[in-house]
Nucleic acid binder design. Structure first.
Length: 292
DNA sequence: CCAAGGCCTGAATG
DNA sequence: ACATTCAGGCCTT
């Protein structure tokens, strides 16, 4: 049977935990989405067609990826095959790196709704107001805008103890200590090392930033959910790391994270990040938690 | 290298 | 109502 690898499932993609500043607009006939991506505002129809304020020509849905090949590569077992079949059309997005970095620094020890609130308030306070489709939006703050903000002001946006991380990270970008264009061209391991030097960026956050905005498809964010999934469906992969037989032990050390990631790339291959996205989506749906 | 504790906050739970 | 728990981690002992 011939499968369609070109159609993007916009709703599933936007609601897959990769992005936070998106809103659905319902009409009588169909729906579409508006989203902030860095200094740009995007409008996406259910057909996946994008209109944007800046028309920067970026490949937001990564349409240049060879999905047929990628899916063939990651479909190494029954679990992945099932997840891929169920969510065919789910994509990784290629986000603005600065927004992505701040978003995931803000995400630690938090939840979707609160991350959204925080990022919306940051944008409204420090981002530029723009009009698009006769509607008002606040684009994401520039690195300079957040670097110039006080920690207290960032806290007022609901970032909590992460506020100082957000400001330091922004300063590092302004100073060129973090250079996204350069990181984008570098290898996974070295990129990881550099961004992990940013306060507030640990293993999981680093993998999110790399996978969602720096074109590192072997990045495989291991959060509590993914670790749970791996323990259930891929116990063999976990043997190296989890001799502990605990109940809900879903935190791992740096060393364990590294070993587990190696095992994952061995198993799924160089596009492991796509596998993560499909598995994550499936498990979240199975679990049936309110999501937005 | 590993374990434990603290951390902002607010929605969900009892 | 009110208190407590918990959430898609990270940093410091």
């Amino acid at each position: 049977m011939m499968q369609d690898f070109n159609t993007v499932n916009v709703e599933a993609t936007i609601q897959s935990g990769q992005v936070f500043l998106w809103q659905k607009q319902e009409t009588k006939t169909d729906g579409f989405w508006y989203g902030v991506n860095g200094q740009d505002v995007l409008m996406v129809g259910n057909n996946g067609k994008i209109r944007s304020l800046k028309k920067d020509g970026s490949d937001f849905f990564r349409r240049n990826d060879d999905l047929e090949r990628i899916i063939r590569t990651i479909s190494k077992d029954a679990t992945t095959k099932k997840a891929v079949r169920r969510y065919l059309g789910l994509r990784l997005m290629d986000q603005d790196p600065f927004q992505c970095m701040i978003s995931f620094i803000a995400s630690s020890n938090s939840n979707i709704q609160r991350i959204k609130n925080c990022l919306e308030r940051l944008s409204k306070r420090f981002g530029q107001r723009v009009e698009f489709d006769k509607k008002e939006f606040f684009v994401f703050p520039t690195p300079k805008a957040l670097a110039d903000a006080s920690v207290e002001e960032i806290t007022e946006c609901g970032a909590g103890y992460r506020s100082k991380f957000i400001r330091s990270a922004s300063e590092m970008v302004v100073k060129g200590r973090i250079d996204f264009d350069r990181l984008r061209r570098m290898e996974y391991a070295q990129t990881r090392e550099e961004i992990r030097a940013v306060p507030g960026i640990g293993n999981k956050v680093a993998d999110c930033i790399m996978l969602f905005s720096l074109n590192k498809l072997e990045a495989f964010p291991l959060d509590r959910w993914m670790i749970r999934i791996l323990r259930r469906y891929y116990p063999d992969l976990c043997i190296k790391t989890t001799t502990k037989k605990t109940t809900a032990m879903t935190t791992i050390t740096d060393r364990q994270y590294e070993l587990l990631h190696e095992g994952i790339v061995d198993h799924f291959g160089r596009y492991a990040g796509y596998a993560q996205q499909f598995l994550f989506k499936m498990e979240r749906e199975n679990f049936g938690r309110g999501w937005l």
